[in-house]
Simulated assay, not measured.
Amino acid sequence: MFLNQRVFSQVRSLTFNFIKLLIGSQFPTVKEINCNQLTQLLSDSAKPRPLLLDARSQAEYAVSHIETAVRIDPLTEDLTAVATALKDRPIVVYCAVGYRSAKLAQKLDKAGIKCIYNLSGGIFQWANEDRPIFQNGHPTKVVHPYNAIWGKLLKTTYHAQEY
Rank of each mutant, 00 (worst) to 15 (best):
F2P: 05
Q5C: 07
Q5P: 01
Q5E: 15
S9T: 12
R12F: 04
S13E: 14
L14S: 12
N17I: 04
K20C: 07
K20T: 10
L22H: 09
F27H: 15
F27E: 03
P28G: 09
T29Q: 14
T29D: 13
N34L: 02
N36I: 10
L38Y: 01
L38N: 02
L38E: 01
L38S: 01
T39Q: 12
L41I: 05
L42C: 08
S43G: 09
S45I: 12
P48K: 15
P48F: 06
L51M: 12
A55S: 14
A55K: 03
A62P: 03
V63M: 06
S64A: 15
T68F: 09
V70W: 05
R71V: 03
D73T: 09
L75Y: 13
L75T: 13
L79A: 05
A85W: 08
L86P: 08
R89Y: 07
V92L: 06
C95W: 00
A102G: 03
A102K: 01
A105W: 01
Q106G: 09
Q106I: 02
D109A: 11
K110I: 07
G112T: 05
G112Q: 06
I113T: 04
I113L: 07
K114W: 01
C115N: 14
Y117D: 03
N118W: 00
L119C: 02
S120I: 02
S120C: 08
G121T: 01
G121D: 01
G122S: 03
I123V: 15
F124T: 00
Q125I: 00
N128K: 06
D130M: 10
I133P: 04
F134H: 13
F134P: 05
Q135G: 04
H138K: 15
Y146N: 00
N147I: 05
A148M: 08
W150F: 06
K152I: 07
T157F: 02
Y158N: 08
Y158P: 03
Y158Q: 04
H159L: 06
H159K: 04
A160F: 12
Q161K: 14
E162Y: 11
E162W: 09
Y163H: 10
